[in-house]
Write a protein that binds this DNA or RNA. Structure first.
Lengths: 218, 218
DNA sequence: ATTATCTATAGATCTATAGATAATGC
DNA sequence: ATTATCTATAGATCTATAGATAATGC
């Protein structure tokens, strides 16, 4: 358990911001050093292993933060699946965009296989595992029907992270509304539910204000 | 409407494969030339604009293919949303992984702003627009409840593309099963539906074989 | 002595340009 | 003449190493 100094934390903060914005290959050590106001070579003092080590440590720190955040959110949601998912959505909303898929795709292929496997495992433990438990619990309580919990966890995570890709949704509603709709999609589905008017009424009132132009075609 | 020669098509085929696997920044012109068995400088004969032009033309060709494929799939699905979504899922399954989010994230930031806007627009017209119409139609027919069709199109597309990221789902069911479950998630949701036993029975029989180990924790 | 930076630079790699070469079709 | 390649190379950039410098704390 080695301590991480303040100056190194500063490096990691900047590295996380830049790497998450542009991806491993697009960001150079020079970019990171410039943002820090130091010279590129100075980064090797903090990370003798160079760019790959810097990325690895940065990503591990990030995943560990998410592991705690997601677990805490689920805890806070009590034992009601909708509340749990809302809390997880709120957690992701409070964090810098993960852009997990970009990272696991383009970035990981640029890394050594050991680094890649290490990060894949961390990502799984931090994000998929807690969400999976969440769905397994809801199934055990009889709250939801039987479906692969891994699939459900993956889909939910995918969609939450997708909210960060602003490129595809110009003029879309704010992310809190979208998150709420996604949760409703998960739980209620799209087909009408004549049996549970209460649930439907609550949803409608929540969405009504931004649903005026839904039926106009673009 | 300029014709594209065979030799240039070959270049585009290889470029598409490599770019989609590794992303814009990870793939060099040398990589593409090597895979073609030619020298790197020879690529400038086909694309005087260099790497960026090659990527642009490749991506435009790909999006145009998807525009036709998705539209045809929806057409083939008739006027039943579930059948339409199944057909779209089958189309994506037949194609090389899009990895759309990776592309729109890491790759587009490396391109000039004109190229980026051009590609974002093509992606929207090819993928989101047809799916959006699909959901709008189902809403107009009263088949599904009112939700933002843009959000629904985005979510469905997101999840279909997510099936291509194998990194997060080791030991997961085959992609056809996952696609079917995602469609069921969209339409039926997770909460039990006591009113529509017919729908539930069909799903259960379809999934029964791969659902044996759902309740064991990992 | 430790921490954190710097300068200078080697070595590798990548994009892009210039101009030559060979084959094919008119 | 057109098509499609090649060789050679300039210029830029990126990672990484070696060794110097300055400040802080003991």
């Amino acid at each position: 358990m080695q301590e991480v100094r303040d100056s190194t934390q500063r490096v990691l903060n900047v590295a996380e911001q830049l790497f998450m914005e542009g991806g491993y290959n697009a960001v150079t050590l020079r970019d990171i050093a410039d943002a820090l106001g130091i010279k590129q070579a100075s980064l090797y003092y903090h990370f003798p292993g160079g760019k790959e080590q810097l990325f690895l440590v940065m990503a591990e720190r990030m995943f560990e933060r998410h592991r705690q955040g997601v677990s805490a959110a689920i805890e806070k949601g009590g034992s009601d699946l909708r509340a749990q998912l809302r809390a997880v959505a709120a957690w992701f909303g409070s964090q810098r965009p993960l852009k997990l898929m970009s990272m696991l795709h383009a970035d990981l292929t640029a890394l050594s296989s050991e680094t890649r496997e290490q990060l894949e495992q961390k990502a799984h433990a931090a994000l998929l595992q807690p969400l999976r438990e969440c769905f397994v619990g809801a199934q055990a309580r009889g709250e939801i029907r039987a479906m692969h919990p891994d699939l459900l966890a993956g889909c939910f995570l995918w969609l939450m992270d997708g909210l960060n890709y602003g490129e595809l949704r110009k003029g879309a509603p704010p992310r809190e509304v979208m998150a709420e709709e996604i949760i409703s999609l998960f739980l209620d589905g799209l087909l009408p539910r004549p049996d549970s008017m209460l649930t439907r009424r609550r949803q409608c009132s929540l969405l009504t204000s931004s649903m005026d132009n839904v039926f106009e075609r673009g």
